[in-house]
Amino acid sequence: MTGQTPPGQGEPLIRLTDVTRSYVMGGVANTVLSGVTLDIAAGEFAAIMGPSGSGKSTLLHILGLLDRPTSGSYRLRGQETGTLSDDALSHLRNQAIGFVFQSFYLIPYATALDNVLLPGLYSDAPRAALTRRAHELLEKVGLTAQARHKPSQLSGGQQQRVALARSLINNPDLILADEPTGQLDSGTSREIMELLAAINRDAGKTVIVVTHDPETAAYARRQILVTDGRVARS
């Protein structure tokens, strides 16, 4: 287990302070995020919106500990993440964050059940407890009958529901969804967003959705608009 400092008194789940991110390409520095300061409290359901190229994906990667800020501070659960090693970040991602992606990203040769179990493999939880929980989660997303199916045997909506169950297997505080409805029709999109809303409401998870679709964003109680690498409105 990573040595975690307890969350500071009254400190929000996520605190970004003056976060910048720039890439050097061909000798030219390209700034994607220029000074993002943002708090997101535990239990929020937020949508990060913005046109493509606005930096919202980069922001999501930083929030998901997949990328590090060039400068500035990111505190998650009251813990400064900038000083953590790569392995410590992996562990924190595993325990504290659940991911949902636009293209589902299920392992094609594994069953729905094994896909749900995937983050559990890299945790310390015992196998039996994980399997029990995976079955519960599959039941919650309505896929008990499809537990042994491969992703290719599932519809897009079903695949995304497997991904939702997967994001919850290690009981994380934070769910990050990157365009979760980007490849779904509007009916299926509504089902997925209802499920995300239920996860936020019933399980008390903090949910952050990145989207450019206003209908999807409408499910969130808070809209954060990113333009030109800055938070324009939160």
Binding site: D86, S90, H91, F99, Y105, L118, R166
Partner: peptide, 16 residues
């Protein structure tokens, strides 16, 4: 690549 990226995203270390 996707499988590897996914595994890393959900918490697999480089060592794993």
């Amino acid at each position: 690549r996707v499988e590897i990226g996914l595994r890393k995203a959900v918490g697999a270390t480089s060592g794993a």
